[in-house]
Design a protein around this nucleic acid. Structure first.
Lengths: 342, 342
DNA sequence: CAGCGATGCTCAATCGATGAAGCAAGAATT
DNA sequence: AATTCTTGCTTCATCGATTGAGCATCGCTG
């Protein structure tokens, strides 16, 4: 191993010289199609050994420039601060690697500008596919991609210009609401209308969940209080201040809540603890998303777990076959009983 | 925008032809040193406009092949399933981008083989730096990197062959243990020896935390029970089965615990709930790591938060100045009072 | 008006890997 | 012995962007 002050990287030309052969032969051996190129196994072995001794690693930049396919697959993701996105990223990486693809992930912190910039950068790196996860403006990204001949998919939040894989938010929210109402009835004797908190009113998922929320109320003949639908955004502080404001103006808050994400739940739980509003009568809570600790927080907490594996199976199903006829694939979420199996 | 069936990517040669100029001029304009190369601002503007119209994006593979520096910086990380690593990754990405670097992150799922493979892949992509976060064998990665003339750093877990930035585990654990003992004394009247659970006995951080744990006990004249140091690994199930086994053999477990990570805490909380072991006498808990929901789980739960920003400041401090004289930088962790400020 | 510098561009080599085309030497066939 | 086939390599153009070197053209000076 050459440990000079400035170790220049070993190239196939260096190896060729050491082996007394041509760069072309070295290339053929190292990328595995030396049989096809009729290189003798002796030479192949010699080159392989040399490459190992020298700690050779192909220069992907050079290799990709020459090849037709980059095998790079990009994903943009809003945050890493919850289990849902964490497991999306981890599963995505694993499944990509299983297919011999190289995953590149970028976190855009829910910043629309960063999303676009990240998409452009990914294109520069010649990604073959770009998965926009929870993007604020997925169609804009799709436009940029298709102008460059790159295919794209939307995950978690749908767009209209590329196939979208999302949770079945309506059914999930309807069932979750049904369960909260049952818990509420069991605890308080009667089913009272719930509070909805979290998410952006403008995004598709939140809208669908609100629709499911309304439908479930209608199913049991309970009417929803419009002032109790607080789509205040995703940040914990927003949920917190939103509850604070409502309590200030209305006095007493409902005894049951539909919380639209674990991130919002964080703010909700913090406010409950700090304000002392619910002392002696802890509210019945349901959350559209799952977190292992949140699941342990209260006995009555219901959590829907989005089926990350199912969603990514759908994503790679499309990628594997190169295209999709469907535009919107909705994956049913999973209900957890008590604390979840890992 | 050309929307052909198979949109070939626009290159500088295409732009040159459209602008009636040379590829060289286009390149100079688009990478910003057209002034240096004495291109007229009229031509510059014309080319810029064309590039935008055509949705041109540089081919990074070609660009990087020619340039001397790749500006790519790699990080390998064990998991995305907790706030600590999530915030490391998010902060890393942000700080890298602020410096005009392109971050590539790979999750190795605590698999030593994958770590090595990932490191090699990163080298192929010509990373300039590789940050090994929580790696099982950081020195092996450093060897691979330095053979290729690539600088590396260790984060979270130290190595001996590259600068390492870690939490001050000893001091953190000593202070955490001190606090748990005080809480325990306040609750039970006297300070009893605590249980230590989670982490790998072989890793530096766990060893240092155990040392801090012992020292804090010694500080108040309480002796540690050796059979109560359960370094059973990081997975939640391991903590769970480890407690199960200990309870089976000893009957009654200690009333206070030092839990070595939020991941282990997950198993601990699950076991407590499932087994019913602590019914009516909930244990005093401290956790070396922070999670917003875990912080709300019990009143007596103490959490140390590792100073992610501080650690990454140190990392980029070294990167910015190109090297480091120090081999081990220890960043003091932060103690949270009650539920944390976000 | 020769001479010089400044201005605004183009040419062509280069980065490292790849693979089509080709070449030389031996083996097999007629 | 002449021809064809096979084996085992090498040569060279290529991918797209970058950049040192060079070449006109123009304005200005003495």
């Amino acid at each position: 191993m050459n440990q000079d002050k400035v170790t220049k990287k070993t190239t196939i030309y260096d190896l060729a010289e050491l082996a007394g052969t041509s760069a072309s032969a070295v290339s053929a051996v190292l990328n595995g199609n030396w049989k096809k190129r009729r290189i003798s196994s002796q030479l192949a072995e010699r080159i392989t050994r040399l490459a190992e001794e020298q700690g050779y690693a192909v220069n992907m930049q050079a290799s990709l420039l020459r090849r037709e396919k980059s095998k790079i697959i990009g994903m943009i993701v809003p945050k890493y601060d919850n289990r849902y996105f964490g497991s999306i990223v981890e599963t995505f990486e694993t499944m990509a690697r299983e297919r011999g693809l190289f995953p590149i992930i970028t976190c855009t912190r829910r910043d629309p500008e960063l999303e676009i910039e990240a998409a452009r950068t990914m294109l520069s790196y010649q990604v073959e596919w770009l998965i926009s996860t929870g993007a604020t403006d997925p169609d804009r990204i799709t436009d940029i991609c298709s102008a460059a001949g790159v295919r794209s998919l939307n995950l978690d939040l749908p767009g209209s210009k590329a196939p979208s894989i999302i949770s079945d938010n309506f059914k999930g929210a309807r069932e979750l609401t049904r369960r909260i109402l049952i818990n509420s009835e069991r605890k308080l004797g009667a089913a009272h209308p719930l509070l909805f908190i979290g998410g952006r009113g403008s995004d598709h998922n939140t809208a669908e969940r609100v629709r499911g929320f309304r439908t479930a109320h209608a199913d049991v003949g309970v009417s929803v209080d419009e002032s109790h639908i607080l789509t205040c955004g995703y940040a914990p502080e927003k949920a917190e201040s939103s509850l604070q404001a409502l309590a200030a103006s209305e006095g007493r808050l409902p005894d049951g809540m539909f919380v639209n994400s674990t991130i919002s739940l964080e703010g909700v739980m913090r406010w409950i603890k700090r304000s002392g509003h619910y002392v002696g009568r802890s509210p019945v809570i349901g959350c559209f998303d799952w977190d292992p600790f949140a699941a342990l927080l209260a006995d009555e907490i219901e959590m829907v777990r989005q089926d990350v594996q199912g969603m990514l199976d759908a994503v790679f199903g499309i990628i594997d076959q190169g295209s999709s006829s469907e535009t919107l694939i909705q994956i049913p979420p999973v209900f957890m009983e008590g604390d979840a199996p890992w």
